[in-house]
């Protein structure tokens, strides 16, 4: 593989490209031969349950870990041989963000800004105002959610071409979470690439163009969010005024499972639920409750029997 010494902005180029990227911790494989391509200008959601290897991947991309096999290219540069140059172009939020507790938000952000060669103060205060962060308070006195805001500001403050965010909305209240998602969309609109990891599907669905799903250290699928949504298993609880029309419901295409409890039916459906609703409606539906299509179900829908 040839290494281009200059970062490239060609739209056809990948912002992130890994080849058989692996990381062993002692005898266990934290990451197992991951081939991942994230095109520039996209929001990419990196999904997986806790311990699947999301943080390991991210720390390898950041140059904080050395791969035990394979390689990672970020913005056209090999991470291992250009660590500082790669890091300078990334806005990074670690999964376990820890700042100096005795510094105020402003002191901390200015300090990191200085180490990055200077960051516009107005940009720091602008981002902080958007997220409702008080910069005069010491980081140690802030709640978990407010500390996370400090982490977000430092990731965005130098307007990097690539943002790598590990569980970014952890601890954020819904309003701030919405503001954060619009910051991500704005970054994409400005041509930046955003790589965000999460174990919450809804968060990724709301903003990502495509997702990669990681399981047990292996990348099991890379899909556009749309096609993932179509294939996702959803869980629906239908409560009827009369007895549950089990047969009619079971006959609907996409219904994978049905469990009846008194006048309620718990259904597992693949893809759209529109047909199911129209079949159920004439039987007198008293209540419909949609249960979040969790990642686990998506895993099960694709890889139920595999590991």
């Amino acid at each position: 593989m040839t290494v281009d010494p200059t970062p490239v902005s060609d739209p056809a180029t990948a912002a992130i490209r890994t080849h058989a990227l692996s990381k062993a911790y002692g005898r266990t494989l934290g990451l197992d031969s991951v081939d991942l391509i994230v095109p520039e200008g996209l929001v990419f959601g990196y999904l997986g349950p806790n311990g699947a290897g999301k943080t390991t991947t991210i720390r390898l991309l950041m140059g904080q870990l050395r791969p035990s096999g394979g390689s990672a290219m970020v913005l056209g540069l090999d991470v291992a041989s250009n660590r500082e140059r790669v890091q300078a172009q990334i806005g990074y939020l670690p999964g376990d963000f820890t700042a100096y507790p005795d510094l105020t938000g402003l002191q901390y952000l200015t300090y990191l800004g200085e180490l990055r060669g200077g960051v516009d103060r107005a940009h720091i205060t602008g981002l902080s105002e958007r997220l409702g962060l008080d910069l005069t308070k010491k980081v140690g006195s802030l709640s978990h959610g407010n500390r996370q805001k400090v982490g977000l500001v430092q990731a965005f403050m130098h307007s990097p071409p690539l943002l790598i965010l590990d569980e970014p909305s952890s601890g954020l209240d819904p309003l701030v979470q919405r503001e954060f998602l619009s910051m991500v969309r704005e970054a994409r609109a400005a041509g930046r690439t955003v790589f965000l990891s999460s174990h919450i599907l809804a968060e990724v669905e709301a903003v990502a163009d495509s997702v990669g799903i990681l399981r047990g250290g292996r990348l099991v699928i890379v899909e556009s969010v749309e096609s993932l949504r179509e294939k996702a298993l959803r869980r629906l609880e239908l409560t009827f005024e009369r007895d549950v029309p089990v047969r009619a419901l079971a006959a609907v295409a996409g219904v994978k499972d049905i469990q009846v409890d008194n006048r309620s039916a718990l259904l597992v459906v693949e893809g759209s639920t529109a047909e199911l609703i129209s079949v159920a409606a004439p039987h007198g539906v008293a209540n419909v409750r949609t249960l979040e299509a969790g990642l686990e179900q998506i895993f099960l829908s694709f890889y139920g029997e595999e590991d």
């Binding site: 904080q64 890091q87 376990d96 990191l112 180490l115």
Partner: peptide
């Protein structure tokens, strides 16, 4: 150990 190096070491400083 307390995780504070994670961000300091990804700035431009080697």
């Amino acid at each position: 150990e307390t995780g504070k190096l994670e961000l300091v070491l990804v700035t431009s400083i080697s």
